[in-house]
Amino acid sequence: MTETTEADQLADRAADVTVSAPEILGRGFMSYERYEVSLRRDGEPPLLQRRDVVRAGRVAAVVPIDLTRDTVVLIRQFRLPAHFATGRGDMVEVVAGRVEDGEAATVAARRECIEEIGIAPERLIELYSVLPTPGFTDEQITFFAGFLDSSAVSERGGVADEDEDTQPFVVSIDEALAALGDGRIANALLYSALQWLALNRARLPELFNRAV
């Protein structure tokens, strides 16, 4: 019998599961699907579940950093679900967007920067990936650090045919990190990105040299 270590306990792993073909509940910008699931654990009878999933797919998110000025570029964008949840739908966010079918996440990251803040990073490095709401959607977000000249950022961004309207702005890294603790921001992607930045700020010159 193989002994389970603490490291093993802390790692996500494949499940012994059978999943039905999807029942399409609705289609819009994303697909809303229902599945019948049979989950097996350690010789116990199968656990039968019915689960509804929003098929959102892959997302690339970018923390645009200006090492010379010690600043980050963020955006402001309206989010209807946030409006419903908190009444503060005009959210502060990092650059982020869908990775198209067949597209590399790095390509999507550069494209989203051009679309949302008007400039592509001079260098880009992949950081980590997360599933923000795995009980509801298969959305997988890959974060990047993008190094750029923040003085070249546009005053307005967004893709017109997607009804997207983003308002880029530049703030000091100190001010961005201060916003983590005082309730000004609620966007999970921004929280995750700023927490990473707080933990890795001293390594930014090293990451810049490794970026491509």
Rank of each mutant, 00 (worst) to 15 (best):
D16H: 14
A179L: 10
R110A: 14
L207E: 12
R27S: 06
S151V: 09
R184T: 09
G87F: 08
V63I: 09
A104M: 12
V212P: 02
T106P: 08
I185K: 04
N200P: 03
V92W: 02
V17C: 06
V37I: 14
F29K: 07
T2I: 07
R50C: 14
D12M: 09
Q167E: 14
F147H: 00
A108K: 04
W196N: 03
G146Y: 01
V212A: 13
V153W: 00
D101L: 11
T5N: 08
F84A: 03
E112T: 01
L80F: 15
L207K: 05
R13M: 12
E6A: 09
L199Q: 07
L189M: 09
R55F: 03
P46H: 03
A15S: 15
R201E: 15
A176M: 04
E23Y: 10
R184F: 04
D163S: 08
V72F: 09
I65P: 00
R55V: 15
F208G: 02
L204G: 12
W196Y: 10
E103F: 14
A193W: 02
R58E: 12
Q49R: 13
N187G: 00
V153H: 00
P45Y: 01
E33D: 09
H83S: 12
P64I: 04
D163E: 01
S129V: 00
C113T: 05
D101S: 12
I119P: 01
E155V: 11
D165G: 01
D90A: 08
A120E: 06
S192E: 13
A56G: 14
P45W: 03
A85L: 13
G102R: 15
P132E: 05
P64M: 04
N200V: 07
L204Y: 05
E115D: 09
R98H: 11
P45E: 12
R123F: 05
A60H: 02
D138T: 13
S38I: 04
G97H: 06
A198P: 01
A85M: 14
